[in-house]
Each structure stands twice: as C-alpha cells, then as structure tokens.
Amino acid sequence: MKKFKIDTFIIALLCCIVLAYFFPQLYEWRAGKGLEMITTIGVSLIFFFYGLKLSFKQIKDGLSNWKLHVLVQFSTFLLFPLVLLPFYPFIKTSIQHDFWLSFFFLAALPSTVSSSVVMVSIARGNMAAAIFNASISGLIGVVVTPLWMELFMDFGDVDILGHVYWGLTKEIIIPVLLGQFLQPYLGKWASAYSKQLSRFDKSVILLIVYASFAESFVSGVFDSIGRTYLVWVFVGVVVLFCLVYGLIYALSRYVLKFSREDQITALFCGSKKSLTHGSVFGKFLFVHTAGAGLYFLPLMIFHAFQIFVVTIIAQRYHNKG
C-alpha cells in the first residue's frame, strides 16, 4: 500500500496566510504597488511558459471528441454556477452575500491545467482530450468568468472592458500566444525545465495569495467572521465538489454512455477549478476590495480537497486498469 504524500504546495499556502497575518509589511511596501508589479510580471511569465510547453499537435489530436469537450466545458462554466444560483434568493446579510459570492467566484473559474492532465494520465484516461480541454478552459474563462461575476458584483468605478478584460488579455492570452509562437524554438527547453517552471508558477501564486490575505488582515475584514464561518466554508466545498462530481459521473456514464477513458477525462477535467487562474482573475475582479482574502478561501480549500480526493480516485482507476 502506497503512502499518501502531503502536497507541500498546500502547506506553503497555509504558511503564506500565517505570514500575511503576522508580517503584512511586504504588502504595505510602496502601498502595495511593489508587490503588484512583481506579481504582474510573474503571471505573464507563467502563461508565457505555458504557451511554450503547449504542443499544437496534442491540441489537434483532441479536437474530434466534441461531446466530451461540450460536457467538460458545460460542467466547468455552467453546471458549477447553476448549482449555486438557487441559493442566491435566500441571502439576507452582507456576510451571507460574501460567503455566497466567494463560492460563486470558485464556480465561475476555469478548470485546472497541469493537475487535470496528470490525474487523467495516472487514471489512464483520454490524454489528448484532457490536454485540449484543460488548455481551452483557461481561454474561455477570460471571457466567461468576468461575465458571471458582473451579474452579482458591484464593480463601482472599475472599467470592466478596459481594466478586467484588457488586464486578463494582457497577462494571460498575449503571453500564451507569444509562447505558442516561440514553441518550435523554445519548446524543448520548456519541457526539459518543466519542474523548475512549475516551482516558479507556484511561487507567483503564493505571492498573490499572500498579498490578498495581507490586505484583508490589514483592513480587518476577518475580524467579522469566526470559526463557524470557516467550518461552513469547508462543508460547502465538500458538498459542491461531491455534487458536481456525481452529476458529471451520471451524465458521462448513463446519459452520454462514454467509454471508460472519456469518463475519466470528463470527471477529472470537469470537476476541478484552477487556483492559478483564480489568483490572477481575483487581482482584477476584486481590485480595491478589502475582502479579497475572504473570496479566496473556498478556492484554496477546494484546491486542496480536489487534489486529495482526485489523487485517490485516479490511483484506483489506475489499479483497475
């Protein structure tokens, strides 16, 4: 029996929150502008390197299975939000609104990229389709996620078109396209140093998480919530994941009658949410919002929970062969 290894990145996330609580001075340096500039450059490099590693042939190979693609993207951008929408009319207080909105932000995000593909590989699913869906999800999210959030958020004087969409295009789409353009020349280098680039990605995410929580701690937004709130966040994450995972399983197996390989890809790509994209999107969607850290809580817990659960499920699929 294999020992389950604790993900060191999850531990690092928790350490960042503790660091933000006791030492918010790094965020306060130059009124937050210094850290913002560093993370902006870092995010652009993340997606540039992603473009370098993305093989056009792998994407092309996964194009044909359109029913699978529709289910994955439907689950990612429609099923998740639709599960949460019925609870919106029951919101009575500002705390309840923040709680619900933090979960809706999670629900509106794209799927993960690398971890989805890795899990599908372990479980022996449809790799070509997994690479295609994981790749296209982030690009769709640049358009769809802000549209969903705009329905329930008051952006005030924030220019959605100019600030949010242009910011996401500048930091995600343009670097990916540039990476794709240079992929024939630098693709082998990116593949050879994929582990080092992955560490760089995680370091940038940790900086964004630190900045968000430091801002929230400085503003005192967490003073209004207690342990009960955190317990409900955890319960909500578990229920949301299990419900969506179960619905995707039923649709892929009993309604669409997918093959075993396609079921695995639908389950692992459609039920996951990207902490990388969430960190970047939050920078633009929650600009000037003191409670940004509060909105990241469900996403961070979901990230840890999905890795834990899906790793176990992927290993079981692998053993069944």
Rank of each mutant, 00 (worst) to 15 (best):
F181Q: 07
F49L: 12
L230R: 07
V144H: 03
Y165A: 10
T112H: 06
I95E: 12
K202M: 12
G32W: 10
A128Y: 05
G125S: 04
L147R: 05
M149V: 07
F302M: 08
Y295R: 04
D201A: 05
Q315Y: 12
L168V: 08
L82K: 03
A214H: 06
M300N: 01
Y254W: 13
L177Y: 07
F105Q: 06
L84W: 03
S121R: 12
E215A: 13
A266F: 00
F77A: 01
S191W: 06
I41F: 15
S55K: 12
G236K: 01
I136P: 01
W148E: 02
I46V: 14
S102E: 06
K202A: 09
A211T: 12
S259G: 12
L101V: 10
Y295L: 10
Y229G: 06
V221R: 08
V18D: 07
G270I: 00
D157E: 15
S114A: 13
S137D: 03
V309Q: 04
L297T: 07
D154Y: 11
L68S: 00
F9R: 06
I122T: 13
K170S: 14
H288W: 11
G138I: 04
Y27Q: 14
I41S: 10
R124K: 15
S116E: 04
Q263Y: 02
I38L: 15
Y249Q: 09
G34S: 14
W66S: 06
L101P: 00
L71K: 00
K283S: 14
S219L: 06
F305T: 11
V144F: 10
K195C: 05
F48D: 03
F49Y: 10
K283Q: 15
Y254S: 09
G291T: 03
N319M: 13
E28D: 12
G187W: 04
T169R: 01
N126R: 00
P86D: 10
L230Q: 08
K2I: 12
I313W: 13
S102W: 02
H277F: 12
Q183C: 09
I301G: 00
F23E: 12
I172S: 02
D262M: 06
K92I: 08
P110Q: 08
K195V: 12
I208K: 09
G167A: 11
G246C: 11
S274G: 11
C242K: 10
D262F: 01
Y185P: 02
S194Y: 05
F234N: 03
A107D: 01
R316C: 08
V309L: 05
K170P: 05
I10A: 11
I174C: 07
F105G: 00
S191R: 12
T76M: 03
A290E: 14
R260L: 08
T76G: 01
V238D: 05
V118A: 13
V218S: 07
Y245N: 06
C15A: 15
S64N: 10
N126S: 07
L85T: 09
F49S: 08
I46E: 04
I136W: 02
K67G: 08
Q263V: 03
Y295G: 00
V43P: 00
A192L: 14
D61S: 09
L109E: 04
V237A: 04
N319S: 14
G51H: 06
R253Y: 06
D61Y: 04
N133T: 05
V238F: 09
F99N: 01
I225K: 04
R30T: 14
